[in-house]
Measured scan of single mutants.
Amino acid sequence: LRQRHVACLARSERGLGFSIAGGKGSTPYRAGDAGIFVSRIAEGGAAHRAGTLQVGDRVLSINGVDVTEARHDHAVSLLTAASPTIALLLEREAGGP
């Protein structure tokens, strides 16, 4: 079961505080899956403080732009754009009992 949710992050002077992996033109985060995933969350960064991202979340869109088939460098450029806030649509595998 997959759950979707939106995370809104305000960029700090240190950026957004998370890294992505995967996407076309880069090493897959999961074998056989060209999706883009949250690969790291920086301690004390914007994403960590927001508490809405988890490592392993699939990134579906960035500020309304679909990145499900995107190249890695395109997703990075969307994240590093000048916008002071970033809205992410994420998909998470629902774990637990």
Rank of each mutant, 00 (worst) to 15 (best):
V67A: 04
V38S: 02
L9F: 15
E13K: 11
R40G: 14
R58Q: 06
D33F: 09
G44E: 10
A50S: 12
A70E: 07
A34M: 15
C8M: 13
L88F: 03
A82N: 13
D66C: 06
G64P: 00
S61D: 05
H72M: 09
R92K: 04
E69D: 13
A42C: 10
I62R: 02
R58S: 03
A46W: 05
D73F: 05
Y29N: 05
P28T: 08
G15C: 06
A42L: 13
N63D: 09
T52V: 10
A42G: 08
R14I: 09
L53I: 15
V6N: 08
D73V: 06
G96N: 14
A42Y: 13
V67R: 00
V76T: 09
T68E: 07
A75I: 04
G95N: 11
T85K: 10
A94W: 13
I41M: 05
A81T: 13
R4K: 10
R58I: 00
R92E: 03
A42R: 11
G22N: 01
G56T: 02
F18H: 01
D73P: 03
A21M: 15
R40T: 14
A42K: 15
D57P: 00
R14D: 12
T80L: 11
S12D: 15
A42S: 15
D66L: 04
F18E: 01
G22A: 01
Y29M: 05
A75R: 01
V76I: 13
A87W: 10
A47F: 04
G22C: 03
A10T: 13
E91R: 00
A7V: 15
S77T: 14
F37N: 00
R14G: 13
R2M: 08
L1E: 14
L60C: 08
L16T: 05
A34E: 13
V6Y: 10
G96K: 12
I86K: 04
A31G: 15
S77V: 09
G17H: 02
N63V: 04
K24P: 03
R40Y: 15
H48C: 10
S39E: 11
A70S: 13
Q54A: 13
L53K: 01
A50C: 12
E69F: 07
A42H: 13
L90A: 04
V59D: 01
A94R: 14
G35L: 00
V67G: 02
R14S: 09
A31K: 15
E43Y: 11
R49V: 14
T85S: 12
G25V: 02
